[in-house]
């Protein structure tokens, strides 16, 4: 075993101490989850109440979070306050504890109003909104059906869902302005299989546009159309996309086939801007564009793209969810019986 020179030991000890405190200071594992904040607040309320018994908790969610999230937090709060065996919560009445959920630009503020022997007191927990997982609503219509496949906060220009054949995994190809990501479904969840930066071809303008094209003839490739450029990308290996100059022609919709008949329909969106939710519309492709749609499907926001990776059986739509600010990828299919 080698030994360090004795004269360096004090310096090393000091240095080691500084390093220890530095890393101890920066690497503390903090539980920043919303539930942790709620539990901590309940703990403080419990301490304030001391020996006073909590007769009930008046819980008020002022559209700060979804109702299911609110109920989840309420359970955590009550459990921490009284123990899991207790069931003394009420929606209204003269409760000794009242909790209010309020939303501010960056936080959800949880206020606990406590009535103890010293009068009313307010205690607070501030939960960063960015740390609260988003939830998707479920909207259903009788004919067009959608299934949420993927959501992320980064802007998605286009996406294609490719159903795996002969035991192969399902694939989800997601085009962002500067990267093409390929995900594969393994054990029920999406895992990143490839991530291909677009380099110079990346979309650099405001309101960037881009589209993906997929053909069953070349199941391991996609064509990427960006403003002024067309690229070919392999889905099966890590090779970089190859691009060339091109004139961009943007598609206006895609075809969608009914599983119960030979009818092929045209799927489009009704096209607002980024501030209003769109509707997906199903129309007869052989009739004029002004025809009324035969089926509609409400979406959570503007539809950014519609593409097809399943050869008419289903299409893929990218929607900007106006409620959550996330970009969502939906598989759009026709329900049988149309």
């Amino acid at each position: 075993m080698s030994q360090l020179p004795a004269r360096l030991s004090p310096r090393i000890r000091i240095f080691s101490t500084i390093l220890f405190f530095f890393f101890a200071g920066t690497a503390i594992a903090r539980d920043d989850s919303a539930e942790h904040h709620v539990r901590e607040l309940a703990h403080r309320v419990s301490a304030e109440l001391a020996k006073n018994k909590v007769n009930c908790v008046n819980w008020n969610n002022h559209e700060a979070v979804s109702e299911s999230r609110s109920q989840q937090w309420k359970s955590v709060f009550v459990e921490e306050l009284q123990g899991p065996q207790s069931d003394s919560t009420e929606a209204s009445g003269n409760c000794s504890v009242s909790v209010y959920l309020e939303r501010t630009p960056a936080q959800v503020v949880v206020t606990a109003g406590v009535e103890n022997g010293n009068g009313k007191q307010a205690l607070f927990a501030a939960i960063p909104r960015a740390g609260i997982p988003t939830e998707s609503g479920n909207v259903a219509t009788p004919r067009l059906e959608k299934e949420l496949l993927w959501q992320q906060s980064e802007r998605i220009l286009d996406a294609i869902f490719v159903r795996g054949e002969d035991g192969a995994s399902d694939r989800l190809v997601v085009l962002q302005k500067d990267v093409l990501n390929v995900y594969e479904k393994r054990s029920g969840s999406w895992k990143e299989a490839q991530s291909k930066p677009l380099g110079d071809a990346a979309a650099r303008q405001r309101g960037p546009q881009g589209e993906l094209y997929y053909s069953l003839d070349q199941p391991d490739r996609v064509k990427i159309v960006l403003a002024g450029k067309t690229c070919q990308a392999s889905l099966g290996d890590a090779t970089a996309p190859s691009c060339q100059q091109n004139v961009d022609v943007w598609r206006t919709g895609v075809l969608l086939s009914s599983p119960c008949s030979s009818q092929v329909w045209w799927l489009r969106s009704d096209g607002g801007d980024m501030t209003v939710p769109d509707r997906l519309e199903l129309v007869n492709p052989s009739l004029p564009a002004t025809q009324a749609p035969v089926a509609e499907l409400a979406t959570t926001g503007p539809v950014l793209s519609i593409s097809s990776g399943e050869a008419l059986r289903a299409d893929t739509a990218v929607v900007f969810n106006l409620s959550t600010g996330n970009y969502e990828v939906y598989r759009i299919a026709l329900a049988c019986g149309l």
Partner: peptide, 24 residues
């Protein structure tokens, strides 16, 4: 069947006058 439809798909994608997402 889908492969036979592929040219039709391409054609319709290009010629359709149906209104789609409004591009900025």
């Amino acid at each position: 069947g889908c492969k036979r439809l592929a040219p039709l798909v391409t054609l319709l994608v290009i010629i359709s006058g149906a209104q789609a997402t409004t591009k900025p």
